[in-house]
Design a protein around this nucleic acid. Structure first.
Lengths: 206, 206
DNA sequence: GTCTATAGAAGGATAGAC
DNA sequence: GTCTATCCTTCTATAGAC
């Protein structure tokens, strides 16, 4: 793999993924052409195929890498946590908001472009998506079983929490009236209300 | 406007909107071709342009009609309501879930294809979308002002509630373990938890 | 490693026959 | 009101020069 001076394959590959991520998020996978991506990267369209076999694989790799990052980051973040379900869910809320706000483009793609994955690729991503949702589901189950939570419904509570947390990405603009800390605090407050329905309020450590 | 027997313009126009709605929801606006739509309708591609000036207008009309239906339906549904914010929000929750589950395709389009609207069309739709979200916002403001609710944050609560309610569309399949009634009940329960945080629980009339 | 050139398919939209 | 035929553009992906 001889390399000319002045060119850098690794860098171009990175820029390709970056450009594709930005453009897919902004205009949608189907609406973005390889030519557009090439222009953004600063190379000719044909040159892209040195770095990806096709457009579909480009989409899949963006989503797959995102899911891996997400799952790995939670592994790391949750390692030091004890057994208290309330502490766990608070950590999860903070984690989800923070992680997702830092990656607006990837999130958008992850939620909008599932249907543009090939059948096989969809299955692979869907599996990881379910694994992530299962993390929250497990916390809720534990909390409900131990009596720490009083859920309206375990499964639906997990859907509702994921939906409201992910929804932050749809309106958050870094320049608003609310700091990231304040947003986390408000969502913690709301999630506490959700998991404690019908029972005594448990004030957390925050 | 002479018309041959055996053909029916009104009917074809209706079928065009129906086919476009189904296909846009399933594959995405950008990924669907006019030829595909024509095949679904059962006419030739050229014939579509008797009923719509272009593809963009087709998308806009689907979304605009949907928003009008939504706003009109709430007008009707809320007309008989009194002043109690808790009664209002319960009605809103039921209404939103029921309305949206009956129109999975339109919802999907309304939330996924905003970015494929032209700039002017986007503004028009966005205006109606904000009007709808404002309905919930007003209920929350009233409830908070009267002390009936104890919200973590008025604006964010409305975002969170809309997000969790709309999220139902993403997992609901008419054949699941949960009936529509049960789903409404669970979401009512969760929303009560959300609006009553930190204060005494108010048991509603259900 | 990137370029130009191009194959080959498909797209939106229009014209004119019937 | 619908058809066939077609214009013109754009697309993904490949071939081969440098």
């Amino acid at each position: 793999m001889a390399r000319k001076s002045g060119s850098d394959g690794k860098k171009t590959a990175r820029e390709l993924r970056g450009a594709a991520t930005r453009l897919f998020a902004k205009y949608g996978y189907a609406a973005v052409s390889m030519r557009q991506i090439a222009t953004e990267v600063g190379v000719q369209a044909g040159a892209l195929y040195l770095y990806t076999p096709d457009k579909q694989t480009l989409l899949y790799q963006i989503m797959d890498r995102h899911m891996d990052d997400l799952l790995d980051a939670w592994q790391e973040e949750s390692a030091a946590l004890g057994d208290d379900p309330m502490a766990k869910i608070e950590q999860f809320v903070r984690f989800h908001i923070r992680f997702h706000l830092n990656r607006g483009d990837e999130i958008f793609i992850a939620y909008m472009e599932l249907r543009n994955l090939s059948e096989e690729n969809f299955e692979l991503i869907e599996q990881k998506r379910r694994a992530y949702e299962g993390l929250l589901g497990d916390i809720l189950k534990e909390g409900n079983a131990s009596g720490r939570f009083a859920l309206c419904d375990t499964k639906l509570s997990s859907y509702a929490i994921i939906a409201m947390l992910t929804g932050v990405s749809t309106w958050y603009k870094g320049d608003g009236r609310l700091s990231l800390d304040k947003i986390e605090e408000v969502y913690l407050c709301m999630v506490r209300g959700l998991v404690s329905e019908g029972g005594a309020k448990t004030q957390s450590s925050r």
